[in-house]
């Protein structure tokens, strides 16, 4: 199995993909974490990125939003290379890509109300909730939260509710792309199910595409149309979820699938 054999995700002809990386290399010190990563997130699509800890999947997400810098290669957001445009343009482009982190307990500033958090996303300078009442109300409605939560502080919410607020913060800017980095991993299964339900319902109502990073193969299958499998900094396989899961081409993908309890081929003997 070589990199070329892994098909590019098919893309709509008339829309530029919100995200495309080309030959992306990222290193921390002397260790390279990502090697020659090509991934495309087509418009109006949820792409799953699966892999185990240390595979580099989170690094990829963080590089796309600009937390890490690539050593080589391009990150194209709607066709434009984020790292070669001017500072001002990059800032605008950044706002079209929203990042939702994993930990529901550190994703919201403890001393800021929900309203302030959401307003800051809309208007980093003033961050006044009263300036944006409508937009805030709409974002909260999208994540099925009551409008009266704007006055509340993060400690008044459960983990699932906090993730909803984090999602609202991402949605409020009406981005082209959302990077969701293990956003359900810290939650109980029933809460995870609710968040997944919410994300599925959003697919039809919002414009954004999503790169959904997760270690949970089953979650990815319920949510995503396409999947990319990462292993040791390399995307070993990508394609439609059902195809990849049913007929994995790469040895690692097979091993990964066979390790999921309850899946076909899972055995403890």
């Amino acid at each position: 199995m070589t990199a070329e054999a892994a098909n590019q995700v098919p893309m709509d002809i008339d829309t530029t993909p919100p995200l495309e990386t080309r030959g992306l290399y990222v290193s921390f010190g002397h260790t390279s974490v990502l090697r020659d990563v090509d991934i495309t997130v087509p418009a109006h699509t949820v792409v799953g990125l699966v892999g185990e800890s240390g595979s580099g999947k989170s690094t990829l997400g963080k590089t796309v939003v600009g937390i890490n810098k690539p050593r080589e290669g391009q990150v194209l957001v709607h066709g434009e290379d984020v790292f070669s445009v001017g500072k001002r343009r990059r800032a605008t482009m950044r706002r079209q890509v929203q990042y939702i982190p994993q930990d529901p307990f550190s994703t919201l500033s403890p001393r800021r109300t929900v309203g302030q958090t959401l307003a800051e996303a809309l208007d980093p300078r003033r961050a006044k909730p009263s300036d944006h009442e409508q937009a805030i109300a709409r974002a909260l409605e999208q994540v099925r939260l009551d409008a009266n939560v704007v006055e509340k502080y993060p400690y008044q919410f459960s983990g699932g509710q906090r993730q909803r607020i984090a999602i609202a913060r991402a949605l409020i800017l009406q981005p082209r792309l959302i990077i969701a980095d293990e956003i359900t991993s810290a939650l109980d299964v029933s809460v995870q199910a609710e968040i997944l339900k919410l994300l599925r319902s959003l697919e039809s109502t919002i414009e954004a595409s999503m790169l959904f990073i997760s270690h949970n193969l089953a979650v990815v299958q319920t949510l995503c149309e396409y999947v990319a499998v990462m292993h040791q900094g390399v995307i070993v396989e990508q394609g439609k979820v059902d195809d990849v899961y049913r007929d994995p081409q790469h040895e690692y993908t097979r091993r990964l699938l066979a390790s999921v309890p309850g899946s076909e081929g899972f055995s403890l003997d």
Binding site: R94, S106, S109
Partner: peptide, 11 residues
């Protein structure tokens, strides 16, 4: 993460 997010938002 909230500081990271704020930074990404351009604050």
């Amino acid at each position: 993460e909230y500081v990271t997010t704020a930074r990404l938002l351009g604050v």
